[in-house]
Amino acid sequence: MRLSDVSVDQMATIRTLGSDTHFLSRITSIGLTEGTRIQVVRNDKKMPLLIYARETLLALNRKDCERIEVEVKV
């Protein structure tokens, strides 16, 4: 499932972050790696997603979220 499709307040685990090295470096340095557990806090159309990970509230633009595959825990 794509991160951009996760609904609000759901918890998810990052499966894959894609293979763009520049993007990987940036997203890693702010704390997101494959296996990181996250919570989607806000997911509004046309707005960046708000997610909570490693005790930090992060704003992630929608395009990047469409590239991130996650696994939702039921």
């Binding site: 509230l57 704003a59 992630l60 990047d64």
Partner: peptide
Amino acid sequence: RTGMIMELPP
């Protein structure tokens, strides 16, 4: 110019 990746501090 990359998409926004930003922390919202408490």
